Amino acid sequence: MAMAVWAGGLAGAAVLAYAARRRWTALLPLAAATAAGALLAQTGDGLWHTDPLARRQVCDTSVAPAVCVNARYAGALPQITGALSGVTGRLKGVRNLPVRWEDRDGGPRDDEAELPSLTPLGWSFVRGRLTDTGEFAREAVGTLVLRGDCPDDRLGARFERADDAVENYLAPLPSRRYFDDLDSQGDARRRAALARRRAARARLAAMGEQERRDWLSAYFAARAACDPSGVPAL
């Protein structure tokens, strides 16, 4: 209320001052703005109140990683868990995963991955519904795989091929075919790199279930430690 009076008073004073020039009526909104400004100054940080729900998360711990959303969007949790069910289903039994996908202000902790943002509303999340569950799942896989702050000098071809294979296995990206086609028409170096990526994807997909769980467990441990030598061969 004080903010409205302050802003309105300043605007009103400016308009009336221009129209009435030196007439005393221009002083009334200015006086109101001055009083409201003093109130704002005295109130300080206490004027702004964070929505208490924004500090809390609600989680579905029946899957791993657990899926957590900001409490403001608690009603969307079943839908979001459902959108990630294909990913969590493929990760069943895999070790060394983050504890949860989190959805709160600030970056994720070391044992967390960041849930794709549900804001700004009106783009990927409209009227409490995800507009593209497949894209949401692919973004969640991206934050799962690329979490942490591995320096560039610790990343190399071994991680790149493994990351690509894991992302392709957990949530295939339709546009990957487009980029693969571009590389297939590139120079010898790009074609050779594409052949290695495709071979790695095929080997991961062809593994038996237990072998793949063991491979993924070792991969996520190496990813968390930024240790390329810990990435099992593909």
Rank of each mutant, 00 (worst) to 15 (best):
A11Q: 08
A11S: 12
G12H: 03
A14S: 13
R21E: 06
A26K: 02
L28F: 06
L28Y: 03
A31T: 01
A32C: 05
Q42K: 11
T43W: 07
H49T: 05
H49S: 14
P52R: 02
L53I: 01
L53E: 04
S62C: 03
V67C: 03
C68R: 05
V69T: 10
N70T: 09
P78W: 03
G82W: 01
G86K: 06
G89R: 10
K92T: 15
G93Q: 01
L97I: 07
V99I: 12
G106W: 04
G107C: 08
D111M: 12
E112G: 14
L115I: 00
T119L: 03
W123R: 04
S124I: 00
F125R: 00
V126F: 00
R129S: 10
R129A: 09
L130T: 02
L130P: 04
L130A: 03
L130H: 00
T131C: 06
D132V: 00
D132H: 04
T133A: 15
T133V: 12
V141R: 01
L146H: 14
C150K: 00
R161N: 08
D163L: 09
D164P: 12
E167V: 13
L170M: 04
D180N: 15
R189P: 11
R191Q: 15
A199F: 09
A205K: 14
A206Y: 03
E209T: 13
E211S: 15
D214T: 12
A221H: 12
A222C: 09
A222I: 11
A225V: 06
C226M: 04
C226I: 08
P228Y: 02
G230D: 09
